[in-house]
Design a protein around this nucleic acid. Structure first.
Lengths: 83, 83
DNA sequence: CCCTATTATGCGCCAAAACGAATAAAATTC
DNA sequence: GAATTTTATTCGTTTTGGCGCATAATAGGG
């Protein structure tokens, strides 16, 4: 079930959650993606100027992917996703 | 129905399609998003280093949004999406 | 508590995004 | 096929990502 990802913070939070679910540290995820631990940290804290490529790489390594869909109305479940 | 967006080219193509569906030129989309026409052009042609913020802005103006989902197996429908 | 693993920050560097402004190239329209 | 709209590309500038490297700051575990 796809999670809403409307802004960099939401994306960062989802990535962080997925990383932890997989039992990875930022350093380990960095190794798998070829990115610095510092870069992972920036992404997870919601850096809005992160590069598309970088985000896609991280998602890929976490076995996730983006989907593009018509903007949905804010459901209760969506609101949870803010933090 | 969410479209797969695994790489910058797919994202660019989806954005282009959505823009045209709404009868907008790159210039008009640029005005609505506060981005240059040249920037829209780059995005649509799949610039991998585009900024997260920029992409999210464009999606938002087109009434679209990202979702993050577990990577799906490549279905026939997904393959269509390559172009 | 202390020690250690983890995450957040800092500095200098290089490459490139996005900007304004302009123009070239391509596609539409008449 | 000329005129016009649309899209791609260029130049110079400012800003910032991600890099290596290093170090704070903050959990967590024993």
């Amino acid at each position: 079930m796809p999670d809403l990802a409307r802004n960099p913070k939401q994306i960062g939070n989802l990535i962080r959650r997925a990383r932890k679910q997989r039992g990875l540290s930022q350093t380990q995820l960095g190794e798998k993606t070829g990115l610095r631990q510092a870069t992972i940290s920036l992404i997870e804290t919601g850096n809005p100027a992160a590069t598309l490529e970088t985000i896609l790489t991280v998602l890929s390594v976490l076995d996730l992917e983006f989907r593009i869909a018509p903007r949905s109305k804010g459901t209760a479940a969506d609101i949870e996703d803010i933090f």
